[in-house]
Write a protein that binds this DNA or RNA. Structure first.
Lengths: 124, 124
DNA sequence: CGGTATCCATTGCGATACTG
DNA sequence: CAGTATCGCAATGGATACCG
């Protein structure tokens, strides 16, 4: 009855919302932003400085999407000129250990990956 | 001495290879392909059928990159016409539990994420 | 400060055709 | 079967200018 040849793969089917969620949370910039905000709340331009290569357009897009998914909160502080702070939300914080695990994985396996790349690039 | 305000973030700096590796392994299609191959070896066209929405161009690109990073192995079987099998490699298999953890996370948190989206979309 | 709007170059990706 | 090659459109992403 149980298909042992197939992993949890069905969750990743393209029409499945699981897939969409991972795409919106693990993408290039989101992962980085979440990692920063898990450390402490940051303002818009603080984030820009922390992630120097992100454009403000991409940062805005990323923040809006993370906010929509409930991963972060946008807090308008009373100040002049406008001050906005972004903080990790409860759900977002549950990703913290997963992100750490991913970073640990890269640290542990990067040497072997680099050897693999050299082998591959030297072929034929 | 220790900066408690900053997480493991420095690993994600854009010039850092950790970042590049995650980008090449967690992207849209790679995650899906890895998940499939962690279950069992698959041939090129089997993968296409398992992931119906991927084009063969994207599949080829994804497989080459995963192979270059040592995550999967490309095995040419003796057969006519050509038969090629892709299997998870040792390093790639260390990602298995991480992928499962990510999928479990989506399952656990999707309901709350969807509520957050409704709240966000209803605003203003 | 924290954005939005616009333009433009680059890239991604599907569809199609062809090959060993 | 397992690709490669080419084309063309659509989406991304940077640069710049402007606004509350």
């Amino acid at each position: 009855m149980n298909d042992t040849t197939s992993p949890s793969s069905d969750l990743l089917q393209v029409d499945a919302p699981h897939r969409e969620l991972l795409d919106q949370v693990l993408d290039k910039w989101s992962l980085h932003v979440l990692d920063e905000l898990c450390g402490r709340p940051l303002r818009f331009n603080e984030l820009r400085r922390t992630i120097p290569t992100i454009g403000q357009k991409s940062l805005t897009t990323t923040l809006r999407r993370l906010e929509r998914n409930g991963m972060i909160e946008r807090v308008v502080l009373q100040a002049r000129p406008v001050a906005v702070e972004y903080r990790i939300a409860a759900v977002g914080n549950t990703l913290n250990e997963l992100i750490d695990a991913l970073l640990r994985w890269t640290t542990d396996n990067l040497p072997e990956v680099e050897r693999a790349r050299e082998r591959f690039d030297a072929e034929d």
